[in-house]
């Protein structure tokens, strides 16, 4: 699926939630189902700065597509990472670089986009794009 389609799908899923509790319960569920970073890549050099809980992100190229994996000590941070990975993992570098993140706002998690939230979301998005730049084969 294309990035935009996955984003629309996530927005659709989140539109069914009545309150913050349902939303966060889903976020926690997503956090538990995240594609975990390989143990050998869970190292300090893959830590994302600006996060209160440790957050690791790794990327590698497989058949022209970037596969992202992540992990965090905090489950909500992991859930947020899962929402990003579902969209950006297994896409081409070019598509990742041309995409936007408006869907985060659309699912009502805009508060997490503030750099003061200390959950590393902004830094994680930046790192996802950096990896895409670095691994861009075109």
């Amino acid at each position: 699926m294309k990035i935009k389609e996955i984003q629309d799908e996530i927005v659709e899923e989140f539109s069914h939630f009545e309150d913050w509790k349902e939303k966060y319960e889903y976020l926690i569920e997503l956090g538990n189902s995240i594609e975990l970073i390989d143990k050998q890549n869970k190292i300090d050099s893959n830590l994302i700065k600006g996060c209160q809980s440790k957050l690791w992100l790794y990327a590698e190229l497989q058949n022209d597509k970037i596969i992202y994996t992540a992990d965090s000590e905090a489950i909500i941070t992991k859930g947020i990472a899962a929402i990003l990975l579902r969209v950006f993992s297994n896409q081409t570098a070019k598509d990742i670089l041309n995409s936007d993140i408006k869907y985060i706002e659309a699912i009502g998690l805009k508060e997490h986009l503030s750099p003061t939230r200390a959950n590393g979301l902004v830094s994680m998005i930046r790192q996802i794009k950096y990896y895409a730049l670095a691994l861009n084969t075109n």
Binding site: W20, K21, Y24, Q52, S53, E73, A74, I75, I76, T77, A118, N119
Partner: peptide, 13 residues
């Protein structure tokens, strides 16, 4: 077994 950040984020809610 629970990270302090998760507790703080949900208590805020």
């Amino acid at each position: 077994g629970i990270h302090a950040y998760d507790i703080g984020a949900l208590l805020d809610k």
